[in-house]
Computed example of a mutant assay.
Amino acid sequence: MKVFVTIQHPAHVHFFRNAIAELEAEGHAVSVFVRDVAVAPELLDAYGIDYEVLAPASDSLPSLARSQLQYELALLRRAWREDPDVLTAISEPAITHVSTLLDCRSVLFCDTEHATLENGLAFPFADRVCTPECYTDEIGDKQVRYPGYHELAYLHPDRFDPDPSVLDDVGVDRDERLVVLRLVAWDAVHDVGGAGFGDAREVVAELERHGATVRITAEADLPPELADRDATVAPERMHDLLYYADLFVGESATMASESAVLGTPAVFASSLTLGYLDELEAEYGLVFTTGGDNPQAEALERASAILAGYDETDWAERRERVLAERVDTTEVILSQVGDAAGRAGDADRGVAHPLAERQ
């Protein structure tokens, strides 16, 4: 097979990296293309994945439109020249547009219902859209639902082996109660209107009042008085930190889900709602979303309750339930990409096929 993978966000590197490694180990040709967004190229370098930057990052809707046009034209030129069997990405319209123009296959993954702009531009042209079973929107016959989460493509225990030395990197002892606090910039298109915290200093003070050691990962600069709490670890080691943390509190839905599947309880401070976080909360009690009138106050109340009654065994048992009932998502990626490529080849030979078997 010839497979194109496109990357628009650091989390997409994690999502695809194991599938890329397995496809290449089996002798398939994988080309990786990236938008020049913060951290993504660094992660690709850290994992030894070759890639090509096709377009710069954007900081406004007009620049996003320009960047998207540049991205799609560059991807179209590469696909015209290399003739891939399958293009795959997370919620990226470019792969569906290019595959439609060149009559190859697109496999789109999506877990974010409120990414309405990207989804609206991508879904009509996609050959198949793979979503977790908990995804709340109905997409139609092209939708393939599977019992898993994006984060289990790289944090399933078959894929992830945590390294405790990360605690030394952030100056935390094993017997300290560790809270990871995530602050986001809220400038992504699909994040508009989702702000959670108003005053990071108040959040840190309340968490530390319960005896916790706080380490912060932030998209913007921290206030000077919080600079010594900065979690200065390499981006590829953040999951080690989340695994050994006792609690995650933050504004990132992805990191909340990552924490949950690692067995670290997560308090998500945002007014945004997502099917996968709702399921991790309702079915497994590993995520707590605080999206009322005052997300910060709600988040601190929930975090305080977790720290006051912490039971490590209980959280580990909740994680075991997740792993028993949900799949290794990398296997889903491999099966869907392989099936799409096979059907593309058979279609070229004039062989008719029914719809792909659902996961």
Rank of each mutant, 00 (worst) to 15 (best):
E312M: 00
L272F: 15
G48Y: 09
G309A: 15
D339H: 11
A234Q: 13
F123A: 03
T88I: 05
D293R: 12
Y154N: 01
A352N: 09
E72I: 13
A245L: 10
I139S: 04
E202K: 14
I216C: 06
R128K: 11
V32F: 04
V179G: 08
A11K: 10
E312H: 12
L183Y: 07
S60I: 10
A352K: 12
D187L: 05
D161A: 14
G250A: 07
D85T: 04
S304D: 06
P62W: 14
E258S: 13
P132L: 12
Y135A: 03
A79H: 02
K2Q: 07
R182F: 01
E176V: 06
H97E: 09
Y244D: 12
F16I: 08
T264A: 09
V233G: 06
D311F: 11
V249E: 03
A89N: 12
D230Y: 14
V180T: 15
F197K: 02
Y244L: 11
Q359H: 15
E225I: 05
L102K: 09
L226P: 10
A253R: 01
L241A: 07
E258R: 13
N18P: 01
T264S: 09
I90K: 12
P354S: 12
A308I: 03
G194P: 00
R17Y: 04
A347H: 12
L323A: 09
S106P: 11
G193P: 01
R78C: 04
L44K: 10
D111T: 01
H97L: 13
F248L: 15
